[in-house]
Amino acid sequence: MAKVPVQFTLNGSEKAEFVDSGTTLLHALRDKIGDTSPKGGCHQGTCGACSVIIDGELRLSCLTLAETCNGADIRTTSGLAEAGVLHPLQRAFLDAFATQCGFCTPGMIMAAKVLLDHTANPSREEVVEALSGNICRCTGYEPIIQAVLTAARANSQNAA
């Protein structure tokens, strides 16, 4: 099968690969580039475990074709900590017991990050809405919502 070149920035680093036409960004990231932080839970856009940030917007990498990402700025949970220091969202998830099996966590953190990037002090309702595309089957939603609210407060205190 003919390969197509794709080139994009992943967590600040230039990446280039040849993929089969039709390859999803999820497969390209996991199987070609080796970033396994986005997870494949349903491969049909319903669970949110594969969520990544493309040019500042929340996207489902299982429904995004890799070849449409040329030149894009892609962010994943594996690139969120800087120089080993956890992002406030990661810190808050850790402290608030907001992970159980952990499979939904990278996608949850991506969804929460996009929310906080756009809305510094979200209401509880806004947090719930922002996470509504991400399924946690361990039913740990309440600590996750609390973690996002905690991270938002930490962010705004740092900014003040």
């Binding site: 970033d35 402290d95 992970t99």
Partner: peptide, 23 residues
Amino acid sequence: QPRPRLDSPGHVTGKTAYFADRN
């Protein structure tokens, strides 16, 4: 007393290795 889960640091950084992360 609250105690952090031992596997949480891997979960929040995307480093936890699930079986499908082996290639």
